[in-house]
């Protein structure tokens, strides 16, 4: 479909494979080099510790002028991630810059797992819980991690 894979994507892919970010793996699909199968390990300091979360990442035709499309495939209890796995993260929307990379995006998502931001919620019910009863929210997040995010 795409005429030729841009050098930028080839280089990013090479680097992701040769020098992976700790706790993150990203592998291009065999049939489509713009589609990546991503795994992010739940950060140790978070309620998602011990879980492995599957994501999909797609580089649209306009990439890097437009942001990659990223979505959680694994169910997760997080105020900035909704039922469909969509992520509320500024750099995936208006704060996207062509100088950002797949690597930086995945790092930001990893950081989002460590630091949920209920002030900027996507899943409002989860955010509400996170703000009113954080202990309970963290307990639920741990339960979900155990139930859904085991490798």
């Amino acid at each position: 479909m795409a005429s030729q894979l841009p050098r930028r994507i080839i280089k990013e892919t090479q680097r992701l494979l040769a020098d992976p970010v700790p706790g993150i793996s990203a592998n291009p699909d065999e049939s489509n080099a713009r589609y990546f199968h991503v795994m992010i390990a739940g950060p140790d300091d978070s309620p998602f510790a011990g879980g492995v979360f599957k994501l999909e990442l797609f580089l649209p035709e306009e990439y890097p002028m437009a942001a990659p499309k990223v979505r959680f495939m694994t169910k997760i209890y997080h105020p900035n991630i909704d039922k469909l796995g969509r992520i509320c993260l500024d750099i995936l929307k208006d704060k996207w810059s062509p100088a950002l990379q797949i690597r930086t995006v995945l790092l930001s998502i990893q950081a989002l797992l460590s630091a949920p931001n209920p002030e900027d919620p996507l899943a409002t019910d989860v955010a509400e819980q996170w703000k009113t009863n954080e202990a309970e929210a963290i307990k639920t997040a741990k339960q979900w991690t155990l139930s859904y995010a085991q490798a």
Partner: peptide
Amino acid sequence: SHVESRLSEGVASRIECMESNC
């Protein structure tokens, strides 16, 4: 490409630098 992409969204006088957070 950046200018073209911004223009396609109707942005002209407010085309930002491509660097993140700039």
